[in-house]
């Protein structure tokens, strides 16, 4: 058998791999551009600020925008303090051992549970067992559980990235542990922690299956946390699935994509702050 020269195999392999990479990037670009081209013309001030008419065939998406931010915002408000506190405990207050192992295992398992299971759980637990009904608060609590592991993980990484020497310096100057954490570690880890929180907000906004089963799909404006609401992602799903209006579906999808783009750019910017501060 004749041996193919290594340089040739390398050229073939690298070409294939680069092709994979380019194909993926092309798909991403295609999705974003396609949705935006079809949807941007449908976005207007009225579309963003008016209520939908006849099931969403006409009118705007204002109640969905409000509902989305209520559900996703509340989810983050609940999950962020818990997640950050957990991360602080795991990194600053305990040594690696059984306890950290169990907590991390729990968080990792939570991270792997599919959103539809979260939906089922939120439905029987928050909506029925706790009597919250299909509502903003049921949806938010369900999403909070879902994003908790991400927040713990990213906050832990951000806190660990703070050099140990700063901790010793702070102790040497007579600080208690809590003073060291709040005055030295957290301010330095803040951009990294925020990155995780922003990405989790994005994930909450994108989520459909879990909110469908817990927050419901009411078209009207949610006036309180116990009202049912329909998020943007779910509205988009219903519009396209039931063939109500393709134009409105594209426009809604564009709003979603722009939101996610903005959040990702913000997270990327925050991440660069981290490298600048620590470097």
């Amino acid at each position: 058998m004749k041996r193919i020269p290594p340089a040739v195999t390398q050229a073939i392999a690298v070409t294939c791999l680069w092709a994979f990479t380019l194909v993926t990037l092309a798909i991403l670009l295609f999705i974003i551009v396609y949705i935006l081209i079809q949807g941007l013309p449908g976005i207007s001030w009225e579309f963003l600020t008016q209520a939908p008419e006849s099931m969403g065939r006409r009118g705007g998406i204002f109640p969905m925008i409000v509902g989305t931010f209520m559900v996703a915002g509340l989810a983050v408000l609940i999950a962020a303090p818990i997640g950050i506190a957990t991360a602080i405990y795991l990194t600053e207050y305990t040594r690696e051992g059984k306890f950290t192992f169990i907590v991390r295992f729990g968080a990792d398992c939570l991270a792997g549970i599919p959103s539809i299971i979260y939906g089922l759980f939120g439905f029987v637990f928050f909506a029925i067992a706790l009597g919250m009904g299909l509502s903003v608060v049921s949806g938010a609590l369900t999403l909070a559980l879902m994003i908790l592991p991400t927040i713990v993980r990213t906050a832990e990484e951000a806190i660990r990235a703070v050099p140990a020497a700063y901790r010793e310096a702070s102790y040497g100057l007579g600080s208690t542990r809590w003073q060291m954490v709040t005055r030295v570690v957290l301010p330095l880890a803040l951009p990294g922690i925020c990155t995780g929180v922003v990405l989790s907000l994005g994930r909450s906004i994108s989520e459909t299956a879990a909110v469908m089963l817990t927050a419901g799909s009411a078209l009207r404006m949610p006036h309180s946390l116990s009202d049912s609401t329909r998020t943007l992602a779910l509205h988009f799903y219903i519009l396209s699935r039931e063939g109500l209006s393709m134009d409105k579906a594209y426009a809604t999808a564009s709003v979603l994509i722009l939101l996610i783009l903005a959040l990702n750019l913000f997270a990327y910017w925050l991440m660069r702050q981290v490298t600048r501060r620590m470097g």
């Binding site: 994108s206 799903y237 979603l256």
Partner: peptide
């Protein structure tokens, strides 16, 4: 950019 791919809603 790949992380952005992860951020796009599944319905999209």
């Amino acid at each position: 950019t790949i992380e952005l791919l992860a951020g796009i809603p599944s319905v999209v």
